[in-house]
Structures are given as C-alpha cells and as structure tokens.
Simulated scan of single mutants.
Amino acid sequence: MAIYRFRISFEDFDEVVREIDIKSTQTFEDLHKAVHRSTGYSAEKSSSFFVSTDNWIKGDEIAYLPNQRKIDRGIALMETSKLSSFIEDPHQKFYYIYNFDRPFDFHVELIKIVLETDPNIEYPYLVKSTGEAPKIIDKSNFGAVAVSSNPVSTDFDFLNEMDFVPEDTDELEAMGGRGINTEEKDEDTEDESEDEADEFSDNDNYEDEEYNNKEDY
C-alpha cells in the first residue's frame, strides 16, 4: 500500500497551500474531509473532484452530496471511490470545487508517492500548511465579519452612500441654515411682474396724452 502526497492550492489564492499524505486505499471523501480540517471549512457541503488534464480541464467527476440529477446519471461518489482507482499518472491532477452554493476552486496535484506507511502516523496527515484560508461570508458570520472589518462603527451611513440631498427646508436649515424659501421667491417674482406691467401701462398713457396735444396744434 502506497502513500500519496497531494499539494492542494486555491485557484484564486495560490499563496494558500496544503500538503496532505493519504493512503492509496483511502477514498476521495477522506481527502475532502482532510482538506477542510486544514482550512476550517465545513466538509458537509456539496463538492466534487474532477479528473484533470495538465491544463486543469475537467474530466470525470467524483461527487460528495450530489443533487438528484447527478445521482440519476450514475455519477461516482467520493465515499465509495478509492484514490488509487483514479491515479493514472505519477503527477495526476484533480480540479476540485468545494461548496457549489458558494464555490471555492482548488488545484490538487499528486507530488510524491511513498511506498511504505509510517505506523506512527494517522492518515490522512497534514504535512504542510502555508497561508490562511480566506473567510467564507454567510448568514452565520456576516455580522461578525462586519464588526471585525470596521471596529470603529458598525452603523451604515445610508445618507452618505446615497448622496442624499434633503428636500425639506427644516433639514436644509439644520445642515447650515442656507435654505431657500421657494414660496417667498415665487411671490417676489409675481410682485416684480406686476410692477413691470404697471410701468408699461403708465408709458402707454403718457404716449396717448402726447399724441393728443400734437393734434391741438
């Protein structure tokens, strides 16, 4: 019985790496759960390994908690699929998708094969851990993430975010006393219009008197 050493890295966070030793006779479910003991994620999420080419093109799928459509299709299941049954290359690669609801993608590569097991080690065994796995934001920890990312205040400033412009004059006065009384402005405009009308009327009367005086001559 051989020991496989797999290098597991996040596709989008390649600085986060785990190396895990696992028996060739163990299953993909054993590897799946070992990965998430090392990341801190819940293993009880629908996930899949895909036999992959060197260019990470997905092939046959090995699933955990598959949906009914995949079950009806006769998909391979992690709990019954031994690792050795899918190793065709000493550098075999698997593309791994964790949690289809909020997926993280991983690259899984076989980097070493040891022909003897260590009786003092319980497999799967975490050989190396580099980098912290990114946090998963969901309903259970959304508030906690918000507090940790903003320790000063957890209040969301809706007014600033929406570029709020108050319409009420009381709000304007409270924000600096520069409010404009639109009703008074309209009344002033009407008074100015009436004054201009009276001025034109007076001019017309003056012109009529001047014309009549010319006729007297």
Rank of each mutant, 00 (worst) to 15 (best):
Ser47Trp: 00
Ser38Tyr: 03
Val35Asn: 10
Phe86Lys: 11
Asp54Gln: 13
Ser42Asn: 14
Val108Phe: 06
Ser48Cys: 14
Trp56Leu: 07
Glu116Pro: 10
Arg102Asp: 15
Asp101Val: 12
Tyr98Ser: 07
Arg69Met: 15
His91Lys: 14
Phe50Ser: 08
Arg102Asn: 14
Ser84Gln: 13
Val51His: 04
Arg69Ser: 15
Arg69Asn: 11
Gly74Ser: 03
Gly74Lys: 01
Asp89Phe: 08
Trp56Cys: 05
Ser38Val: 11
Ser48Pro: 07
Ser85Ala: 15
Arg73Ala: 15
Lys45Asp: 09
Ala76Lys: 11
Phe49Tyr: 04
Pro66Gln: 03
Lys70Trp: 12
Ala76Val: 04
Leu115Phe: 09
Asn67Glu: 10
Glu79Thr: 03
Ser42Cys: 14
Ser47Lys: 03
Tyr98Glu: 01
Leu110Glu: 03
Ile113Tyr: 00
Asn99Gln: 08
Phe86Trp: 04
Trp56Tyr: 09
Leu115Trp: 02
Gln92Arg: 07
Thr53Gln: 00
Asn67Cys: 08
Arg37Met: 15
Ser84Gly: 11
Thr117Ile: 03
Asn99Cys: 11
Ser38Arg: 05
Ser85Met: 10
Phe100Trp: 03
Phe94Trp: 00
Pro90Leu: 06
Asp60Cys: 09
Glu79Gly: 15
Asn99Thr: 08
Tyr64Trp: 04
Asp101Arg: 11
Asn67Val: 04
Trp56Asn: 11
Phe104Lys: 02
Ser81Asp: 03
Asp54Lys: 12
Glu122Met: 10
Glu122Asp: 12
Ala43Met: 09
Glu88Gln: 13
Thr39Asp: 10
Phe50Trp: 04
Tyr123Gln: 05
Ile113Phe: 00
Tyr98Asp: 04
Asp89Met: 12
Asn67Asp: 11
Leu115Gln: 06
Phe100Ser: 05
Ala34His: 04
Pro103Tyr: 06
Ile121Asp: 04
Ser52Arg: 00
Phe50Tyr: 12
Gly74His: 00
Ser47Ala: 13
Asp101Ile: 13
Phe49Trp: 00
Ala63Asn: 08
Asp60Ile: 12
Val51Asn: 07
Glu122Gln: 08
Glu109Pro: 06
Ile87Phe: 05
Val51Phe: 06
Phe49Thr: 01
Glu122Lys: 12
Ala63Glu: 06
Ala43Phe: 09
Pro90Met: 06
Trp56Ala: 06
Lys82Tyr: 07
Val35Gly: 02
Lys82Phe: 08
Glu61Val: 11
Thr80Ala: 15
Pro124Gly: 08
Ala34Asn: 01
Leu115His: 10
Ile71His: 02
Glu88Lys: 14
Leu110Ser: 05
Met78Trp: 02
Ser42Met: 12
Tyr95Val: 00
Pro119Phe: 00
His91Gln: 09
Trp56Val: 05
Phe106Val: 00
Leu115Asp: 07
Ala34Glu: 01
Asn55Cys: 11
Phe49Cys: 01
Ile87Gln: 05
Gly40Ala: 12
Asp105Tyr: 09
Val114Phe: 01
Ile97Pro: 14
Trp56Gln: 01
Ile87Thr: 13
Tyr96Ile: 00
Lys112Ala: 11
Tyr123Asn: 07
Glu61Ala: 15
Ile97Gln: 11
Ile57Gln: 06
Arg102Ile: 12
Gln92Cys: 09
Asp54Asn: 13
Phe49Pro: 02
Gln68Ala: 14
His36Cys: 13
Gln68Tyr: 05
His36Val: 10
Lys70Tyr: 13
Ser84Val: 13
Asp118Gly: 10
Gly40Val: 10
Ile113Asn: 00
Ile121Lys: 12
Tyr123Val: 09
Ala43Val: 04
Asp105Lys: 13
Ile97Trp: 02
Thr117Phe: 00
Lys82His: 10
Tyr98Val: 07
